[in-house]
Design a binder for these strands. Structure first.
Lengths: 278, 278
DNA sequence: CGGACAATTGATCTACCTCAAAATTGGTGG
DNA sequence: CCACCAATTTTGAGGTAGATCAATTGTCCG
């Protein structure tokens, strides 16, 4: 809510200018290439984009709702979440962002975002000027379409969240969120089994699911007690994907990890998304 | 939910082929021109798009989640809503659509929608083939950008809904929804005062706000009892915009109606919706 | 070792839900 | 124009999921 002192400065190690070969926008291109049709040319072009890097400590905002900063933020490492706040100060988390995501991509078109974005854990973030990005889109319509699709994927996530918050009970919401996090980590290659980073404290979980912290705590204990998940030290392990996804009523279709689509559309709908963990 | 018998046929008067000068896609172009920069050329080009019309009776679906139908639906008249359903059959309404909206615009890029769309009251709907639309986008990047922005506006709406459902109490949610509906009617020129069509029954309201029908009914009585609104026969009249928008915690920024400020936005914000009754 | 923050627990309260029935309304056909 | 049916709205009476308040404990880190 408060664009406080940390406005542009996150600590001693902020604003490292690029040039470091070891850390570039590859998380971004990798994501685009994975989820859309991204030509090699486009990938190269993205690699030439000007940008600079910042390290954002856990809990700090790095995109502020309403601000016109003329750039997009690319998560290079870590997890972030976007949120809005009621006038009375009630916060609603709107979505999570992993490495490769551009949480404020909307600002490229609209000039600003209606949501703020904060780091869940320590994040490396790349800032890319709108000017450069939109010029690239003008030159390469295929890239513009990819980015369009990218915003559509994000929209699909929020729709599912709305369903989650509006129509599932607390346990289901929590389970659903966990399924999404694990699945998305898998989708971008950040894990290959049932465990992944989960740097969300109970306050953030509460605000993501429209619940109170106390209630989150108790339902979390349920999930643990039922041996569905193990969660400690910011690390989530799904103990029984099968049972968890039932509790969660989870159908990963909305994640759009299914590019090269139709295959499963023939025949029994729903037959495709059976348990991903053999 | 069930792509039942009414799959493609809504009644005797469906599938009127276009050519009728009196009813065309102008609601669509009008909306785009109002909210974005749409050149005259683009407007003309849209007018030449092939399409056909259907009349959808209240309560019937005309877009089905998951279906690949190869076309977009343009609301020409009436109100519709999109929704998703839990496996247990709990429905969540995700957004409302007025004349000029394209509720399944995402399908142009993604091939299909993850949400279904139903008519709230009797709707006239125009169906435009994806092929024609995407060809036009390829020829006219400016139009593609407009449509991109259009999807972003929709995304902004859902984000606000998520905040609404997640973090406001029942009365606030209801009031907020009403504010949005009136404001949007104004924004597209469907009303110029504080009253507008409101063809949502209490079941739909409940599913839009994550509440039960009984509870909706009771909070509705509150709003009436406090003389905030008058709602009958599918017609909503805001009796005190000032008090309603406080109850609703309503800030229209998320609607992105801020370009070409619709007259009433000049000067004292809120002055427009003052008591119409001296 | 101390201080801040996060997780946990207990106790109480209430906003909202569910079930079930009654009253209205609106549309339809005679 | 009226009678009738189906859908919607309204009312009543409990029940419960989840909220709130207030400590207490645990954990991380400098």
């Amino acid at each position: 809510m408060s664009p406080d002192s940390s406005m542009q400065t996150f600590g001693s190690d902020e604003l490292k200018v690029s040039g470091d070969k070891a850390s570039d926008l590859r998380a971004f291109t990798a994501r685009l290439a994975r989820f859309h049709d991204l030509s090699d040319d486009d990938q190269v072009a993205i690699g030439l984009l000007p940008w600079h890097e910042a390290v954002v400590p856990a809990g700090k905002d790095f995109v502020w709702a309403g601000e016109r900063v003329g750039r997009c933020a690319v998560i290079l490492d870590g997890m972030a979440f976007s949120y809005k706040v009621t006038r009375e100060g009630r916060r609603q988390v709107l979505g999570l962002h992993l490495a490769g995501d551009v949480p404020d991509l909307q600002s490229l078109c609209l000039g600003r975002t209606d949501a703020s974005v904060a780091a869940a854990n320590r994040c490396r973030v790349g800032f890319v000027p709108h000017a450069a990005l939109s010029e690239l889109c003008a030159q390469r319509p295929s890239l513009a379409e990819v980015l369009w699709r990218e915003t559509l994927s994000q929209a699909a996530l929020i729709r599912e969240w709305l369903l989650n918050v509006g129509r599932r009970d607390a346990l289901g919401r929590l389970a659903h969120l966990m399924c999404e996090v694990v699945w998305r980590h898998r989708a971008v290659g950040l894990t290959s089994d049932h465990r992944c980073s989960f740097p969300l404290n109970q306050a953030v979980l509460a605000d993501a699911l429209g619940l109170s912290v106390v209630h989150i705590n108790r339902r979390l204990q349920d999930l643990r007690g039922q041996e569905l998940v193990d969660l400690k030290r910011q690390r989530l392990t799904v103990l029984s994907w099968e049972r968890l996804s039932v509790v969660a009523d989870f159908d990963p279709g909305y994640l759009h990890v299914d590019r090269e689509p139709p295959a499963f559309l023939d025949g029994d709908p729903g037959a495709n998304f059976k348990a991903p963990f053999p």
